[in-house]
Design a protein around this nucleic acid. Sequence first.
DNA 1: GATGAATGAGGCTTCATTCAT
DNA 2: AATGAATGAAGCCTCATTCAT
Lengths: 193, 193, 193, 193
Amino acid sequence: MARITDQNRVERLKESTMKLVVEKGFGGASAALIAKDAKVAAGYFYLHYHGKYEMVNSLLHSVYQEFVDRLEELILQASTFEVITKKLINHFFNMAINEPVKLKFLYVLTNDYSFVIDPEVKKKTFQFITRLKEVGQLSETLDKNITDEDLYLFLVINTIQFINQRFKNSLDKVSFNEADEEHLYYLIQKILK
Amino acid sequence: MARITDQNRVERLKESTMKLVVEKGFGGASAALIAKDAKVAAGYFYLHYHGKYEMVNSLLHSVYQEFVDRLEELILQASTFEVITKKLINHFFNMAINEPVKLKFLYVLTNDYSFVIDPEVKKKTFQFITRLKEVGQLSETLDKNITDEDLYLFLVINTIQFINQRFKNSLDKVSFNEADEEHLYYLIQKILK
Amino acid sequence: MARITDQNRVERLKESTMKLVVEKGFGGASAALIAKDAKVAAGYFYLHYHGKYEMVNSLLHSVYQEFVDRLEELILQASTFEVITKKLINHFFNMAINEPVKLKFLYVLTNDYSFVIDPEVKKKTFQFITRLKEVGQLSETLDKNITDEDLYLFLVINTIQFINQRFKNSLDKVSFNEADEEHLYYLIQKILK
Amino acid sequence: MARITDQNRVERLKESTMKLVVEKGFGGASAALIAKDAKVAAGYFYLHYHGKYEMVNSLLHSVYQEFVDRLEELILQASTFEVITKKLINHFFNMAINEPVKLKFLYVLTNDYSFVIDPEVKKKTFQFITRLKEVGQLSETLDKNITDEDLYLFLVINTIQFINQRFKNSLDKVSFNEADEEHLYYLIQKILK
DNA sequence: GATGAATGAGGCTTCATTCAT
DNA sequence: AATGAATGAAGCCTCATTCAT
């Protein structure tokens, strides 16, 4: 019971942190504000993290890790390049719909020189990307000129940018449908050929 | 008569601001740090701006405006879609080589929910983008399925992301050559067809 | 010619200083604000005073001195206690009408523990007050129980308070007429008998 | 559970604020100085007030309110005009003896154009003054020519001025005895008749 | 004489963090 | 485990003052 309460607290804290970091930036999201939004005491998160930076960084990594896990999962399922690609794009669209704050958080912090994804994690990510590239090239569904960086750029970064461009340009709630997803996939596969 | 405003001071201030905002984020780039880096008195920039936010925002807009001006210039020169596209990509590569900090600054702040490009400026930008799309579609060098947002995403955002991915992944000085530019152009034209 | 210009500058500076010290207090009346209001360069008054405090203090003393001079003049004219009293009250009402800012300035700074009238000047003032008391007591127009301090309190401080109470309680321009002056004189003479 | 707000800290803060505002004026009493004098952390009072001005203003109002409360109390006790008057004067002498800083603080800030007593409070005060005037006039112990403003001036402002004149003119500790109080009462009742 | 750009000490305030409860 | 009162370093900014022109 006590355990459950605690998990709720931590969960609320994470949600509030992501929301406020997105809205106000790392500096603008004060510990007091986050705590208040999460309905948690000001000093609460020092029981779980060493400081504000560590908390945000740790959140960033767990959000990023989710993506890496999904990427790994897709690679290991050993399906075709097209399917993997499609499913990866779908992964981000699902986030956009179900956890928009999380996706915005990922967007904001990955485009920042003061937060850097752990080199080990990045390395592992690129191992999967390399693997994916090989899958594509073997089946001749991927342009030979495309490097790992290109693949990452168009598949991952671009998808995140596509969605966030929508979030930013509209003042209302943004909705994404299958047509949007198809459209983006259409564009991306054109590059990757 | 009194001293004339020293343009070198102002210039140093701008450079230091961009550099530190890139390195440490808006919050991490303290006024004292910026002033020190610019070899200027602590309160100096309050003679030119109303506050730190205003200074950074104003810098962002003037950097963004440079891009818009270049875009306008290219559109008005009435050349082909391909030439305009190529020259636009070249514009960012030139920035990457000659003014890397400025490009990083543009990258960081355009990917942030707490800094927003003035709607009027954004609107004007998209008028040029629309114009460019029309040029492309008339000459049948641009895929009909591509929207304004797509064009902006692949031509502008993507180019900035491509370059910054390089900056981030390498610890050393990054250099770009014509081959890189060609490569990116090759990829982009594939999408735009 | 140059001399005339200069005198105007200094005069404007004094007026602006008094006005702003009244409105915003000593701390709130910044040197820049005063200079701007006086249409004078920011560093101008350092040619005449050693600093802001010195300027305000010197102004206070010259305004206070005006009163002392008037008091002396009245005493030396060797008229009756009643006439002197009436004319002293009239002196402040004239200030209220013709130089309200000056009177407010005097009011504000004399009711302040951080500005103190020079002991020498105060001493001299009380010599005149003592002299006045003697005049009153000799002619039996002044209550024997009244001390120097009482006389100063009711004649000087009270008159200033009477006028400033009016200034403060009304939002519009305040006007004083002979009836007001008569009324105050009536009240004061009741005390002094 | 967390610590309970330490009322001693708050009390010390109030004392130090009043003391330093009296000694150095609002501008001269810096937040750091006040905090140090109160033996409290630099940012402490922002937990209780929104800023320095608000703190001082709030203090002024609570000090002024004490006087209004006393005035109300005296009016409601339905005694004679003379008794009320005497007790009111006594109220200020008690403050002078027991809480001299508080009285100086009241003196300094009520004689300042940048601090204004809340109009509602002022209005209520004058309702009591009017009531007092009526009491005086009904019992024919108050001169019919005396207005509300006069009554306030001589009873309240004057008493405060009388005491503060003493404080200012003497370098040593000032003491007040019953004779002083009698003396002032004697003078005031002469006016009010 | 007069200006006003520039300085930098110091003001007000915030806020990450600690710790008594 | 959780709270929130308290701290104080550090942030942003103002402004009295200087001095090159």
